[in-house]
Design a protein around this nucleic acid. Structure first.
Lengths: 148, 148
DNA sequence: ATTACTGCAAAGCATTTGCAGACTG
DNA sequence: CAGTCTGCAAATGCTTTGCAGTAAT
């Protein structure tokens, strides 16, 4: 196992400077990142990787199911997170737009069914939304939180 | 209750031609629609509503939690569906991008917890993805489906 | 009458694409 | 060396915004 091998390098993808760098960043992060923030992190470490390349790299990972792409409800920017093959979800604060990892996911121990009717379910994306502690205390004074 | 009242017209929003028309379309549909497709449907029925207005109308509904906005993983276009306050989810086919309502949601009877740590959960967006029957049979011949 | 909403045009911005050169296996 | 990937530039297209006129309460 040479230095390039990661826990689960997507099969069939060549190692390149850009892909290795993006993968390394994703492995370090626990929260989903936008393509832009990945790009900025790369610049900070003086890796010359173009933004369009970041997108292409991420797309290739998504295609291999090594990365999960999702778009928070209140945003127009997609976020990407390493598919850790463990149950892990995030909640988005509708107040300050921060993302918070959810510890006790209510769905944790319920496996998705393999099929539903004629549809073969491969995976799921769950986005929880609500208020982080700070914003909740702020919003209590103005209006009641909407229902689910 | 006059003819304008719908089952749950978002409180505080005025009735207008555009809003009524968009709401009527959303009530008819069981699948989420893009702003563009709503716009096209409006044109077909000779309602002169601008695309930017459709966006504004949808945003106002989302803000009132009358409509749920989400962005399918494999798309860059947001889709909008009436928040029916019943448990209803959709699956996206990664093959042909079609959306299919899921009958037997594994999460159906599990209520989301009200809080998780210091985060106050208000609702959730679940996107299931996989293969519709047609695409599944097609993909079986090429490569094994990726794991969740 | 006052305030909120919409037509319309134009800008904004995340993402994609094309092509020639560079690099990986 | 063949095929894939990336630098770079430019386009694409979804979505937002500004403003003045219009409509709702």
């Amino acid at each position: 196992m040479n230095r390039h091998d990661t826990v689960q390098w997507p099969e069939g993808l060549k190692h390149t400077k850009s892909r290795d760098a993006v993968m390394a960043l994703l492995e370090k992060e626990t929260l989903p990142l936008t393509a832009l923030s990945l790009f900025e992190k790369l610049q900070q470490q003086n890796a010359s990787v173009w933004l369009s390349t970041v997108y292409r790299v991420l797309d290739s990972f998504v295609e291999k199911n090594a990365v999960q792409k999702s778009t928070p409800t209140d945003s127009t920017m997609a976020v990407y997170a390493l598919n850790r093959h463990t149950h892990m979800h995030y909640a988005v604060c509708v107040g300050c737009h921060s993302m918070v990892p959810i510890e006790n996911c209510p769905f944790e121990h319920i496996p998705a069914p393999l099929t539903d009717g004629d549809f073969h379910i491969v995976g799921h994306n769950l986005e929880l939304y609500g208020y982080c502690g700070k914003c909740f205390r702020k919003s209590e004074k103005k209006e009641p939180a909407p229902e689910s």
